[in-house]
Each structure stands twice: as structure tokens, then as C-alpha cells.
Design a protein around this nucleic acid. Structure first.
Lengths: 199, 199
DNA sequence: GGCTCTATTCTACGATGTAGAATTAGACGC
DNA sequence: GCGTCTAATTCTACATCGTAGAATAGAGCC
């Protein structure tokens, strides 16, 4: 049957919103097609007209969460850009701990979302004067550190979370490292990797 | 009925071994109480005599995996100690990608296991001459970076994995950062945090 | 009024984790 | 040998899950 006249129609965004609310409030396990249909006031199977299966629904959730990541613009110092990006990424992830905590392993979606989000980071790191190979490494370091941090932090109840000084201290450390490395690499050639093949 | 005479008895280690094999070979989803009972040649419910429920079984798996993490001893340079620890931790995690990938979010167990494993890391970082507060941050950086790295890497099929040069480059970067910071903090007092309260 | 298409519902199936009762094979006293 | 006890295992059953596949109800068009 088509959409009933009175009720507002089922749409993907309504579905995603409801699902996200469920996950945020009651955990990922509480996201059940039946329950989802319940809060939407609709037969569970109705969802399947809009979403292929639960797995892709989860993908939509991740997309939705990562969609509104944009670090503050208008900062000129690359150091502060890096810090701002890391904070924004962290805050985003911590805003939906249940989703993030249990779905970070959901590679396809997270990787795609993160890839969409991280050019600003790479640009900021690039502005440090690091050689390209190290730019990549430094960017990975920031991204992976935040992932690991969130993974560790997200399961704690918000009240019991750290005040973020640890996070800031690590950002200091990373920035210091980038600076130091940019300095040495501008004078010295890139450090030789072991087992250089003859040529 | 008690253990049958002929068949060897069901024990926790047999259960954990079988479960781990299942997860490693066929993924976490394949770990099902029925299937586990199947490979053990036993009724699924027999497992419940030795393990409270599936959740604690997963805990046992994580324990088992992390139990045999010990980074190579006998290195004297703290830089190499840090590197060695990070590599050991990474290799351990990557040896069981399915488990790690989908169970890293399983905080209680992973946190406990990691905590048991990381004193050597803290010691190595401490030997760098960093002030204590930064030692903590640097240790966190290493641990969280490895977590994030593994999270990103573990889902790729082993053949398609990076050759590890990216990982090594990041280790270089971290070590450089620690060195640089140890230098400046030995001459300058610790950098003021924003919003210093009056006293 | 009848057709067609779209959005929804109904019915059903196999699989899962596990509670709770039933069973059985050995150990132990006699 | 024989009952009895108990630890280890199995049996039965249930609620819940994701979802396949058929059925159906309305809206829009002729």
C-alpha cells in the first residue's frame, strides 16, 4: 500500500534520524529493524523499501555522522590547523560514542568518510615544510591517533571522560615532532631506509 | 552426563582455542555457540558449563591473544625500545585481524590486556628524559596510534597490506618528537596551559 | 470504473543466544 | 555389587533477530 494520507511519508532521512537516535540513546544493539519500524510507526519491512539491508543502513549512519565534520576555517598557522582538525574529528566521534565505538571497525564507510574529511589535515601538515613522504606519515599519525584515542575514550560515560589535557599534550608532542623533523630534513637529506638496494 | 571416557574432556583452553581458530579462519560472525559446539564435538550448551556467556567467552579470546605479547628484551636504547614495543604490539594485533578488527571496541578486555602489556613502553619513554606529564602523553600517543593503525590496516587482506614503511616513518616521527620535547623541556619550564588560574 | 505503479504490510523461515529441566557416567562409601 | 551423589553434558523450548517473497492498499491516469 502507498503512504497513508495522514501520516508523513517514510524517507531515508527519517529512517536514518530515527536509527541514529536509537543508537545514541540505547546503544547499537538496540538498533533492530523491528524496533526501528516501531519508533517510525511502520512495519519493520517498510524500511527495506528505502534501504537494501541493515548493513547499508549502518553505512548511512556513519555517513550521516561524518557528513558534518568541518574543522574551523580561517586559521593561518599550520600548527593550529592541525590541532583544530584533530579536535573537530575527536569531538565528532565522541558525539556518537555508541556508533563510533562499535562501528569503527566498519571499514568501508569509515574509511570513505574519513578520506572525505582529511584533505584539510593533509594541507595543514604539508604547510609545515615536511618532505612529502613525511607529510603522509604525519597525517596518518594524527588520524590514527585520534581513532585510537576515541576508541579508548568513547566507552567511558561522558562524565568520567578526561578533561582533554592529555589529548592536548599529545597534540603538542606531534606538532613538536613535525617541526623538529621539518628542520632536520631541510638541511640533511632524507634518512636512509635500511637495506638500500644497489643501483 | 560426565565426560565420556574415550573423548578428551572439554576445558576452557580447548574452548578458547577452537573459538579463536574459528574467528581467525572465518571471521567473528562465524563464531556461534552452535558452530563452536560443532567443532568441539559437543552439544552447544556444554560450553556454558565452562563459560558464563558469549560475552565473557569473547573476553577470554582477547585475553588469550594479548597474553603472549612480550616485546624483545635486551635493547638498551630507549628509541629502539619504543620502536620494538610498537612493532610487537602491532604484529600481535595483526595476527588476529578478525578478532581485533571487530573486537577492539570491546573495552574492558582490551584495556585490561593493554594495561598489562604497556609498562615496558612507559619505561622506555620515561628513559627519554621527558617530564612525567609528557611521558604519559607520549605513551598514550604510541598506544593509540598503534590501535588506530591496526584498526585501519586489519581489514585489508594480508597480501594487500602496506609494507610497514609508513609505520616506521611514523615511529621516526614520534621518536623525533619525544627527543625534541625532552630537549626543550630540560632548558625551558613546562609550557603554560591556557587559562592558568590565579594563585 | 478499471490499470498500473509505488509504498507498505503480512506471513514465514532459518538462525542465534541461552534459560531450565532432564539425563548420564563416573566417583565413592558400604 | 549396589545404591547414592555429583559434575558434566544434553535436550527441549523460547524469544528475538534479519530478511525473502507474496499479498495488498491506495494515488494518479485513462
Amino acid at each position: 500500500m502507498p503512504r497513508a494520507k495522514g501520516r508523513e511519508p517514510l524517507t531515508l532521512v527519517r529512517i536514518v534520524d530515527a536509527a541514529l537516535a536509537l543508537v545514541d540513546e540505547r546503544g547499537l544493539d538496540a538498533l533492530t529493524m523491528r524496533r526501528l519500524g516501531g519508533v517510525l510507526g511502520v512495519d519493520p519491512m517498510a524500511v527495506y523499501y528505502h534501504v537494501a539491508d541493515k548493513r547499508t543502513l549502518l553505512g548511512h549512519l556513519v555517513d550521516a555522522v561524518f557528513a558534518d565534520l568541518d574543522p574551523p576555517a580561517g586559521i593561518e598557522d599550520w600548527r593550529e590547523q592541525v590541532r583544530a582538525w584533530a579536535r573537530a574529528y575527536r569531538d565528532l566521534a565522541l558525539a556518537h560514542p555508541n556508533l563510533v565505538l562499535q562501528l569503527f571497525s566498519y571499514r568501508e564507510a569509515v574509511a570513505a568518510a574519513a578520506a572525505r574529511a582529511d584533505p584539510p589535515l593533509r594541507a595543514a601538515v604539508g604547510a609545515s615544510g615536511l618532505p612529502p613522504a613525511d607529510v603522509e606519515a604525519a597525517g596518518d599519525l594524527v588520524v590514527d591517533y585520534v581513532h585510537g584515542y576515541v576508541l579508548g575514550e568513547a566507552s567511558a560515560p561522558p562524565a568520567a571522560r578526561g578533561d582533554g589535557t592529555g589529548f592536548e599534550a599529545v597534540l603538542d608532542l606531534i606538532v613538536t615532532g613535525i617541526e623538529a623533523r621539518a628542520l632536520t630534513s631541510s638541511t640533511t637529506p632524507r634518512r636512509r631506509r635500511a637495506k638500500q638496494p644497489a643501483r
